[in-house]
C-alpha cells in the first residue's frame, strides 16, 4: 500500500501548497504557493524533502488526520496545539507517526498559519507545474472530510547528522508590534506629500477581509487618485481604492489590477503578513 494520510476533520481552511505556479501569469493564472515561505522551507529542510515539496497550510484551526503508514512529519509556523494519539507534538521537531495513529491539530495561536509537512511530501497531480490548490484551476479548493492524500517517496534519514538551528521559526511575530518594510509603488509619487507621510511610520490594522488573495486594512487614506490603466500586480503590491481602502495583495491575487499601486511590500516581510489575522497591527515603514 502506498503511504497516505486520511482526513478526519478538515480544520477551518486547509490547503495543499508548494512553491506555486511560475510561467502562467501572462495567462492570468495566480502564483499561489505557501504564504509563509520561511515556515514552509524550514519544514521541508527538517524532513530532508526536496525544497518545494508540497505540504498542508492550515489556517486558524488545524485538521485532524490519520496516518495510513509509518510516516515522519513536522509542524512549523504558528503553534497548532497538536497531539499524536493524545501526546503533545512540539513545533519544529520531526516525529515518527505509526500507521493508524491520529494527529489532532487545534486552534492556531501566535499567528494564523501552521504548516504540516510529511517526509516525502504530498504527492498529487501537478496542474500548470504546481500542486498548490486554487479552485477552480485545481479540482479541490480546500481540505474536506474523508479525503485521502497520497505521499511521495521519503529521503528522511539520508542525512542523519543534520542539525537545524534557528533563531525564529517563521514569520511568526514575537514582539508586540511588527514592522512591515515597503518600497514606494509605481503610483506612490502621485500621492500628495501629506498622503505619503500618512503611509510611513503609522500603525495599520488588518480588517475582517483577509485571505490568501488579499489583506484589506481598516485605516482609510482619503485620496483623489485616478484609476490607472489595468496594469501588472504581484503578491505584496499595495493598492489604494478610490474610497481610500488599502489592499495588500497576497499569493492568490490576480495578475493585473486597475487600482493605483502605492506601495510594494519587501518580499521577506510577506512572511510576517502571512501570519496576521483580523485585528493584527503593524507599523508600515517606507524604505
Amino acid at each position: 500500500m502506498k503511504p497516505s494520510i486520511s482526513i478526519l476533520h478538515p480544520g477551518f481552511y486547509t490547503t495543499v501548497q508548494d512553491n506555486g505556479r511560475e510561467g502562467y501569469a501572462l495567462l492570468g493564472v495566480p502564483q499561489s504557493g505557501a504564504m509563509d515561505k520561511h515556515a514552509f522551507m524550514i519544514a521541508n529542510a527538517i524532513l530532508n524533502n526536496t525544497p518545494g515539496a508540497a505540504m498542508l497550510e492550515c489556517t486558524l484551526l488545524g485538521p485532524t488526520i490519520v496516518f495510513n503508514h509509518d510516516i515522519n512529519f513536522v509542524i512549523t509556523g504558528s503553534n497548532a496545539g497538536a497531539t499524536l494519539d493524545g501526546a503533545q507534538v512540539m513545533e519544529g521537531v520531526p516525529v515518527l507517526a505509526k500507521a493508524k495513529q491520529v494527529l489532532k491539530m487545534s486552534k492556531i495561536s501566535g499567528g494564523s498559519r501552521s504548516y504540516l509537512a510529511f517526509a516525502g511530501g504530498l504527492y498529487s497531480q501537478n496542474i500548470l507545474g504546481s500542486k498548490s490548490w486554487y479552485y477552480p484551476l485545481t479540482p479541490q479548493g480546500k481540505l474536506s472530510v474523508g479525503m485521502e492524500l497520497p505521499l511521495g517517496i521519503s529521503r528522511y534519514g539520508a542525512s542523519k547528522n543534520a542539525h537545524l538551528k534557528m533563531q525564529s521559526q517563521s514569520g511568526v511575530i514575537n514582539s508586540s508590534m511588527a514592522t512591515i518594510k515597503v518600497y514606494r509603488g509605481p503610483e506612490f509619487s502621485k500621492l500628495t506629500y501629506n498622503q505619503q507621510q500618512q503611509l510611513s511610520n503609522h500603525v495599520f490594522t488588518v480588517s475582517n477581509l483577509w485571505n490568501r488573495m488579499a489583506i484589506q486594512l481598516v485605516e482609510i487614506l482619503p485620496n483623489a487618485l485616478k484609476s490607472i490603466y489595468t496594469s501588472p500586480v504581484i503578491p505584496g503590491t499595495v493598492q489604494l481604492t478610490p474610497s481610500g481602502k488599502l489592499i495588500i495583495l497576497m499569493n492568490d491575487c490576480q495578475t493585473t489590477g486597475g487600482y493605483p499601486r502605492v506601495l510594494q511590500v519587501v518580499d521577506s516581510d510577506l512572511n510576517k503578513l502571512a501570519q496576521m489575522q483580523q485585528g493584527s497591527q503593524f507599523l508600515l515603514c517606507v524604505t
Binding site: 511560475e22 510561467g23 501569469a25 501572462l26 489595468t230 496594469s231 501588472p232 493585473t256
Partner: peptide, 14 residues
C-alpha cells in the same frame, strides 16, 4: 524570464 504585459506596461518577473 516570464514577461507579463498589460495596456502600456511590461513586467519582467523574477
Amino acid at each position: 524570464a516570464e514577461v507579463v504585459h498589460t495596456y502600456n506596461e511590461l513586467l519582467l518577473k523574477d
